[in-house]
């Protein structure tokens, strides 16, 4: 499209030397130093999720109880509903934990997650805009941290890895940062 002059007319020698330079520039750091194998999250993240699902279940249960009372039905059904929801929440938490996998590959971050909808994502380093670590109040008491990776994509904020120890999180942040610098894409926006 807009990419100006194509250099097919260049002499072979010139192209060769440029190619070598490009190659040298690209291989400053070996990406394999930064990659990881497939890792799962810290088990403590289950407590974090369980807190969340339980709170949601209780809120839904309370609303249901009031609704039942308004319709002159036995409000105890609301209690049963809450208990069922809490249990379902626990099942979801365990499954969610078992499914979650992340891997720092040599050219992309790979994520696998989701109980009801199973999603596998590849985030190329070239596309990474910036990398954050964040810690919510519950995460802080549990000693956990979340790594959030931003891309310019419309689903940019979707890419986050929860349930990391703070050390893991900052280690991952360093790795991803290095790899992203290494990839040095033009932003192509």
């Amino acid at each position: 499209m807009s990419d100006g002059g194509d250099d097919r007319t260049e002499s072979g020698r010139e192209r060769g030397s440029a190619g070598v330079a490009v190659e040298r520039e690209r291989r400053r750091v070996d990406p394999s130093e930064y990659t990881t194998d497939r890792r799962s999250l810290s088990p403590r993240v289950q407590i974090n999720w369980a807190v969340r699902t339980t709170v949601t279940a209780v809120v839904v249960g309370l609303i249901a109880t009031f609704a039942l009372r308004a319709f002159d039905l036995d409000p105890r059904i609301g209690g049963v509903l809450t208990a069922v929801l809490v249990l379902l929440g626990f099942v979801w938490v365990v499954l969610h934990y078992r499914i979650w996998v992340y891997q720092i590959q040599d050219d992309a971050i790979y994520l696998e997650r989701g109980v009801l909808t199973h999603v596998r994502t590849l985030v190329p380093y070239v596309r990474i805009q910036h990398v954050d670590t964040s810690r919510g109040p519950v995460e802080r008491t549990l000693g956990l941290s979340t790594l959030v990776v931003y891309t310019a994509g419309s689903r940019g904020a979707d890419v986050s890895i929860p349930g990391l120890t703070p050390e893991e999180a900052s280690d991952l942040q360093q790795r991803v940062k290095q790899l992203a610098i290494e990839a040095e894409g033009d932003d192509a926006l």
């Binding site: 009801l116 199973h118 999603v119 596998r120 190329p124 994509g153 192509a188």
Partner: peptide, 13 residues
């Protein structure tokens, strides 16, 4: 292809 940001595949129940 060079405009791709992320690629993902998903599967609902």
């Amino acid at each position: 292809i060079y405009r791709v940001q992320t690629v993902l595949d998903s599967q609902t129940v």
